[in-house]
Simulated scan of single mutants.
Amino acid sequence: MPLRLPDQLPAIDILKRENIFVMDETRAHSQQIRPLRIVILNLMPLKITTETDLIRLLSNTPLQLEIYFMKLRSHTPKNTPIEHMKMFYRDSKELMQQKFDGMIVTGAPVETVPYENVDYWNEINGIFDWARKNVWSTLYLCWGAMAALYHFYNIPKYLLPKKRFGIFRTKPCDPKLPIFRGFDDTFMMPHSRHTEVKKKDIKKVPELHIIAESKEAGVSIVTSREGREFYILGHLEYAPNTLDKEYKRDLGKRDDVEMPEHYYEDDDPKKKPLVTWRSAANLFYSNWIDYYVYQETPYNIDDIH
């Protein structure tokens, strides 16, 4: 929560320079308290798992959040009960009549398919454009990040020689950004993907800024529009056993399955995974809510419905 301090207290300027969220009395009295509205476009096949992963991270803030789940009109999920979709998901056309403080667009199991061949590509393009006008800050995850980078900036994706699979050490490029408040010099991030975007392509677009990189995993987090959009190529939201389940699911089904890197204790899949990314994940999502959504959203109660 922000520190509320008397107007003109000398400590305010000092703390602000240290990247501490300080609110003076004038601003505090003008705050209109309402729940922040977050919409999640969940494109993952195991929707209940992804819902749980994201809500777990979003819950680590004392701010009140209202969570909405958006479903596509042009695609019917095969792995989630229709009863669940009817009960908890709302149609994209309905939700796109409203404004939201924040949005999360997940990955999808279509990363090796050309974008234009994805059956819901036209609809998701419309959602991307709507989000720019009606959502204050959006997180795009994995395939969602690559798809949005392609849609907005024509950034291509490239097929990797082998699946990028494991937990990789990542370094913030600008540790002073509020999104990295509380982070160590490096942090760990899960990756599970067959494609990538390249630094050389992103560098050609002045509006895009690479804010986290990994020597092994490459470009990890990109931002644009002063934090209105974040493109995250990994999966900070993953639960401890997600990669383990994926690895054991694919064993025996394909001959190219490799053990996830830097994941199991002593690199032994018979041992439990080492959870090395949870603190960074909690910080990242809390910082996004606190500093890019709560502090920045211009929407008031009359705007959002």
Score class of each variant (00 low, 15 high):
residue 159 L to P: 03
residue 176 K to S: 14
residue 45 P to M: 10
residue 155 I to N: 04
residue 26 T to I: 12
residue 23 M to V: 15
residue 55 I to K: 14
residue 80 T to R: 03
residue 184 D to E: 14
residue 109 P to T: 09
residue 225 R to E: 15
residue 18 E to H: 15
residue 293 V to K: 06
residue 133 K to L: 12
residue 117 N to A: 12
residue 143 W to K: 02
residue 245 K to C: 01
residue 73 R to E: 15
residue 132 R to P: 00
residue 235 H to I: 00
residue 6 P to H: 11
residue 1 M to Y: 10
residue 212 A to I: 03
residue 287 N to I: 08
residue 11 A to D: 14
residue 152 F to E: 06
residue 241 N to D: 12
residue 267 D to S: 13
residue 126 G to C: 07
residue 130 W to D: 05
residue 39 V to A: 08
residue 282 N to C: 13
residue 132 R to G: 14
residue 163 K to Y: 07
residue 147 A to Q: 01
residue 211 I to D: 00
residue 227 G to T: 08
residue 124 I to A: 04
residue 60 N to C: 15
residue 49 T to K: 15
residue 37 R to G: 04
residue 260 P to A: 11
residue 82 I to W: 06
residue 155 I to C: 04
residue 256 D to R: 02
residue 107 G to K: 03
residue 208 L to M: 09
residue 206 P to M: 09
residue 252 G to F: 00
residue 167 I to Y: 06
residue 204 K to H: 10
residue 118 V to T: 13
residue 34 R to A: 12
residue 12 I to K: 01
residue 195 T to P: 04
residue 153 Y to P: 00
residue 266 D to R: 11
residue 64 Q to I: 12
residue 89 Y to A: 05
residue 257 V to L: 01
residue 36 L to E: 09
residue 110 V to G: 06
residue 74 S to I: 04
residue 251 L to W: 11
residue 66 E to C: 12
residue 51 E to R: 13
residue 159 L to D: 08
residue 246 E to G: 04
residue 231 Y to I: 01
residue 242 T to K: 05
residue 249 R to G: 05
residue 219 V to A: 04
residue 85 M to G: 01
residue 24 D to F: 03
residue 130 W to M: 02
residue 216 E to H: 10
residue 186 T to L: 01
residue 232 I to N: 01
residue 14 I to H: 09
residue 209 H to P: 01
residue 299 Y to D: 04
residue 87 M to C: 13
residue 67 I to L: 14
residue 247 Y to C: 02
residue 236 L to I: 06
residue 270 K to I: 10
residue 152 F to D: 05
residue 155 I to H: 07
residue 14 I to K: 10
residue 82 I to D: 15
residue 5 L to C: 12
residue 197 V to Q: 07
residue 168 F to M: 03
residue 248 K to T: 10
residue 110 V to S: 07
residue 78 K to S: 13
residue 205 V to D: 00
residue 267 D to G: 12
residue 283 L to Q: 14
residue 298 P to A: 11
residue 44 M to L: 14
residue 231 Y to V: 02
residue 42 N to Q: 03
residue 254 R to Q: 10
residue 15 L to D: 08
residue 68 Y to H: 15
residue 268 D to Q: 09
residue 210 I to T: 02
residue 51 E to D: 15
residue 277 W to G: 07
residue 135 V to Q: 05
residue 145 A to K: 02
residue 24 D to R: 08
residue 150 Y to D: 12
residue 7 D to I: 10
residue 78 K to F: 11
residue 41 L to A: 13
residue 105 V to H: 03
residue 159 L to W: 01
residue 2 P to Y: 05
residue 250 D to A: 10
residue 198 K to W: 06
residue 55 I to G: 00
residue 30 S to P: 05
residue 103 M to P: 02
residue 117 N to W: 10
residue 111 E to Q: 11
residue 275 V to N: 07
residue 50 T to K: 07
residue 10 P to K: 03
residue 108 A to S: 14
residue 138 T to V: 11
residue 104 I to F: 07
residue 30 S to L: 11
residue 189 M to A: 14
residue 289 I to M: 03
residue 244 D to Y: 08
residue 299 Y to N: 08
residue 50 T to Q: 08
residue 202 I to M: 04
residue 24 D to S: 10
residue 79 N to M: 12
residue 255 D to T: 09
residue 22 V to F: 00
residue 75 H to N: 07
residue 59 S to Y: 13
residue 172 P to W: 09
residue 222 V to W: 00
residue 126 G to R: 13
residue 134 N to S: 14
residue 206 P to E: 07
residue 239 A to I: 05
residue 153 Y to D: 03
residue 92 S to P: 04
residue 103 M to A: 14
residue 114 P to V: 07
residue 93 K to A: 12
residue 258 E to W: 05
